[in-house]
């Protein structure tokens, strides 16, 4: 009988301890909203880079023509330049 009473008392004590612990943990406290990230400190605009004189892009290198290719061009002219000239510009007013 005594054993039973002791078990009940121990159980009650355990419940009381648990209650005390839960209270100390503030389980019923509302959850705080997540903290907004701190606004980033706006960095000052980067200092303008010192202006470097940029050379204009080099003109396209002239097409290298070998002496043999040049000779063929010269000979082609000598045998008659038979490429067709582009159309003349369209006339403005009708005639």
């Amino acid at each position: 009988m005594l054993k039973k009473v002791l078990w009940i008392a121990a159980a009650c004590a355990a419940v009381l301890v648990a209650l005390a612990v839960s209270r100390s943990l503030d389980f019923d406290k509302p959850v705080e909203p997540a903290q907004e990230p701190a606004p980033a400190v706006e960095a000052p605009p980067p200092a303008p880079e010192p202006k470097v004189e940029v050379a204009p892009p080099p003109p396209p290198a002239p097409v290298q023509v070998t002496p043999e290719e040049q000779q063929i061009e010269d000979d082609a002219a000598a045998t008659g330049m038979t490429t067709i000239e582009p159309d003349p510009p369209a006339e403005a007013p009708p005639t």
């Binding site: 330049m81 038979t82 003349p88």
Partner: peptide, 21 residues
């Protein structure tokens, strides 16, 4: 008749670059 005399005259000579040169 079609009002394109100048264009027709321009079309008459040879069109080759050899002639133009």
């Amino acid at each position: 008749a079609e009002g394109r005399l100048q264009a027709w005259l321009d079309s008459l000579p040879p069109r080759y670059s050899g002639y133009a040169a």
